[in-house]
């Protein structure tokens, strides 16, 4: 059944469609067609030198599940996310709470903590690589140790995680500070009158009132961590023995698709990644409904 549109509604519809068209075409060509093509490619075997695709069904997925390298990269990526997200957010929360008051130098601190956020990750990674250097690095000199921070597989992943946390602190802190400033002051006043301790107000007012923002940060943080790409291979050599213990899934995707030109396999890896991120996003949103306090 068609409703008759007035002339005004018709012009509105016309303009709406005209204005949304560039974005719509862009999304279809640059994003939605690629999703379909990636899924199709993941079902194909790519010929030598990346030429020619033969449909093989789920072969690439079966290979990926059997491939110890894929398994290892998954473990590395999860390990990175599980360590960096909670630690990073806890430190940022402490900093945000400390900064959430009238004080001298607030802008100064904010500017400094935010600094890594505006730097090319490649540059940041290069400096840390130099500081981690075993023979001449600043860290070994300062601690008087002789540890191969980025050559020893058992500590290398922690060293990468440290850089990840360091880089993201300021960004999370600024978001949390924004959330803290939205909490009405009278809640704290009432708590003070009731004689609540600082500890109590933090867990009974600050955390619940901040929970929507905390969840947002946890969610974007986990998704961001699962898509880690540049830090590991810039901090250490890809030829290093330790690299296999930090190589993330996106690097494996890049390597398979663009260095070995094995696009079908690369596409399968990225589809698996998409599914995992999808499941995690869904799970987090279910938890959000349970735990987050909305005013």
């Amino acid at each position: 059944m068609k409703r008759k549109l007035t002339r005004k509604q018709k012009t509105e519809a016309k303009w709406g469609l005209i204005m949304v068209t560039p974005t719509l075409i862009g999304l279809l060509v640059l994003n939605f067609y690629p999703i379909v093509q990636t899924i199709y490619l993941s079902l194909c075997k790519t010929g030598d030198f990346g030429i020619g695709n033969v449909f093989i069904g789920f072969g690439n997925y079966i290979d990926a599940f059997k491939d110890p390298e894929v398994f290892q990269a998954m473990i590395n990526t999860f390990k990175y996310a599980i360590v960096t997200v909670p630690i990073g957010i806890s430190i940022s929360l402490v900093l945000a709470v400390l900064l959430n008051r009238k004080m001298k130098g607030r802008t100064f601190y904010r500017t400094i903590y935010f600094l890594p956020m505006i730097c090319a990750p490649a540059a940041v990674a290069m400096v840390w690589r130099w500081m981690y250097n075993m023979d001449f690095g600043l860290i070994n000199h300062a601690l008087g140790t002789n540890t191969g921070w980025i050559t020893d597989p058992s500590v290398a992943w922690i060293c990468v995680a440290v850089v990840g946390i360091w880089s993201g602190l300021g960004y999370n802190m600024v978001l949390l500070l924004g959330g803290l400033q939205d909490i009405p002051k009278d809640y704290y006043e009432a708590a003070t009158i009731d004689g609540a301790s600082g500890f109590h107000t933090f867990f009974n007012i600050t955390i619940p009132m901040l929970s929507p923002m905390l969840f947002f940060i946890i969610q974007t943080g986990i998704i961001g961590a699962l898509q880690l790409f540049d830090l590991p291979f810039m901090i250490m050599d890809t030829t290093s023995r330790a690299f296999s213990s930090v190589k993330p899934i996106t690097y494996l995707f890049y390597e398979q698709s663009f260095i070995y030109s094995n696009r079908g396999y690369g596409a399968a890896i990225v589809v698996v990644m998409l599914v995992i991120i999808g499941i995690i996003t869904f799970a987090i949103q279910r938890l959000e409904k349970k735990w987050v306090f909305y005013n």
């Binding site: 949304v20 939605f32 490619l41």
Partner: peptide, 27 residues
């Protein structure tokens, strides 16, 4: 503005935001 397929188009926008960008790269 109100126009046909508005909700569908907005859904496409949201889906694109949720999908990790690596999936677009090969194509």
């Amino acid at each position: 503005l109100n126009f046909p397929f508005k909700r569908l188009i907005f859904a496409l926008v949201l889906i694109q935001m949720m999908v990790p960008s690596q999936i677009f790269i090969i194509p």
